[in-house]
Design a protein around this nucleic acid. Structure first.
Lengths: 241, 241
DNA sequence: GCAAGGCGCGTACGGTGTGCGCTAGCCTGA
DNA sequence: TCAGGCTAGCGCACACCGTACGCGCCTTGC
């Protein structure tokens, strides 16, 4: 016999509300990040998030205006993980910048779903951590000796590069993760398919076949470092002029 | 008197199928691009796309495996718009690369929804146009004199930068477009909000307030050119060594 | 001891992508 | 010439989605 939920049980039989501690914004953000890390951005839903917090989906809306705003909060929270080295003198500018860039990339690879969001962020998001990171990065370029009109551009160049490369790395790693294979296995699996597709573009094959036996993670690390070094070379040259 | 659609009208009264010309993959891709250009990626749905083609949403699935595959086709189709200058000698390498980068950025700004997709693409998509563009770009770096092990990396560096910067530009422009204002109006509107938010990070304000009265489009163009020049400087230096 | 406000929740609405199986027209082969 | 199979479009249905709304409980401040 189904009970009509409209008519609550008697005061005696009905348990008092399970005394849940209140939902908080921090809790919601933290749970969202766990869920995103575990399953990626495509399958995040307010209902799943609610379930994970033992709450109804609609309860979340007391603490967060909507899903987009939640994503903004989440992105800013992740930026909180980032430590930018303190600005030293012009001498260690390059080392500091390199470490900052590596930290940003590492952050994006720890949370592969975040890279596309970072790209979207730019001027629109003005969360506290985002601003702190920007400000600290800017300080690095300032200490390096970039004039006021240029430090913004120098930073923008670096950020565009790191976000760009991290986005494709993250997409690639997510794809592999979904396939259930290791990176090396996946690369080996895909080679015939890729070779066939690139049959009429032999130039595309050279690079990949030359590095066929190298650990793919090392390739990615080296590629990242290569581009970063070139960009810092270019910026350093500008500094000397 | 409502007609039960389960019972089709008699053969005589029921019109023969309206002789629509067949749906084709090309048609679907073209319509998708129109829809995306007009309304952005967030509101694209298979049903809307069907309506635009005078077809049921489910009919599209005869020609396209699913929405993700459709997006891959669309991305590759857009890559078809791109003309990469032919590889000349080492002399005009820099000019050619600059033009290629500008073309890629222009493409991404013409179709602001594409930038995030480009980031995701990387190795996963192997459409014909994508491969042609990669191959032609690679030829540019080869002609410039980069050794076989390095031309891939040089290209990757450039692509990461252009995609990174275009992604945030595109996101920003889409935001403005949705607000219904012009870019200059929007910038002026946002200034107080931004100033307040950056109160405790004065460094963030310097750059933006210094350029307060410059045409924002020109700022974006100049910023892009600045980073591109630095990167090409860095790559050129490597070439000389 | 009571009023007010904050919070969680049930329900509901208008979407989404897409699997399934029917139908009708076309092409093929006998 | 005609039967039979193949194909493309479609209606329906399913399992989701984000989120507006309003009810009632619980806590807080007086």
């Amino acid at each position: 016999m189904p009970v009509d939920p409209k008519v609550p049980g008697s005061v005696w039989t009905r348990p008092s509300r399970p005394q849940r501690e209140q939902l908080t914004r921090e809790q919601i953000v933290a749970a969202t990040i766990e869920l995103l890390d575990a399953e990626g951005v495509g399958t995040l839903s307010m209902r799943k998030l609610g379930t994970r917090l033992d709450a109804a989906a609609t309860s979340l809306y007391r603490h967060v205006a909507n899903k987009d705003e939640l994503m903004e909060l989440v992105v800013d929270d992740i930026y909180g993980e980032l430590e930018i080295p303190a600005a030293g003198g012009p001498a260690d500018w390059r080392a500091a910048t390199t470490r900052a860039a590596a930290g940003l990339r590492a952050m994006a690879l720890r949370h592969p779903w975040i890279a596309p969001e970072l790209g979207q962020a730019g001027l629109a998001h003005v969360g506290p951590n985002t601003m702190r990171v920007s400000s600290e990065l800017l300080a690095l370029f300032e200490a390096a000796g970039f004039p006021a009109q240029e430090k913004d551009r120098a930073m923008g160049t670096l950020m565009a590069y790191v976000i760009g490369i991290a986005t494709s790395e993250a997409a690639y790693l997510s794809l592999i993760a979904r396939s259930g294979r290791t990176e090396s296995e996946w690369v080996a699996d895909q080679r015939p398919r890729f070779d066939e597709a690139s049959q009429e573009h032999p130039r595309l094959r050279e690079g990949s076949s030359a590095r066929q036996d190298v650990n793919p993670k090392k390739i990615r690390d080296d590629d990242f470092a290569y581009g970063l070094d070139r960009i810092l070379d270019g910026l350093a040259a500008r500094l000397d002029a």
